[in-house]
Simulated assay, not measured.
Amino acid sequence: MRPNITITIPTPYLPLEEYCRLTGMKEGTVREMIRDGRMPIRGKGDKPRAGVFINVAALTVEALSESKISLQA
Rank of each mutant, 00 (worst) to 15 (best):
I54K: 09
K26I: 04
Y19G: 01
R49Q: 04
Q72V: 15
M25Y: 07
G43E: 12
K47H: 07
T29W: 09
Y19A: 01
I5Q: 00
V61T: 10
G45E: 01
P40C: 07
G37P: 06
T11P: 00
A63S: 14
R38F: 08
R31D: 04
T60G: 06
D46V: 02
R31I: 09
E62S: 15
E66L: 12
T11G: 01
I9G: 04
L22T: 00
V61K: 13
V56P: 08
K44V: 05
E18L: 10
P15F: 03
M33V: 00
L14W: 11
K26E: 12
Q72W: 15
Q72H: 15
R2K: 08
M33L: 12
K47E: 03
E27M: 14
I69G: 00
E18Q: 12
N55A: 14
E62Y: 11
E27K: 15
M33Y: 14
S67F: 12
S70I: 13
I69L: 14
P15N: 03
A50L: 03
R49W: 05
K26C: 01
E66A: 15
M33G: 00
R35D: 12
L71I: 14
L16T: 02
S65K: 15
R35S: 13
A63V: 05
P3D: 02
L22V: 00
I54P: 05
L22N: 01
P10Q: 05
A58R: 14
M25E: 11
P48F: 13
I41Y: 09
G51W: 01
A73C: 14
T6C: 02
T60R: 12
I34E: 09
Y13R: 06
P10H: 07
I7M: 04
M33P: 00
A57Y: 13
G51L: 04
V56R: 13
R35L: 13
E17V: 10
K47A: 06
A57H: 12
G28K: 13
R31A: 05
V56W: 07
C20T: 07
T11A: 11
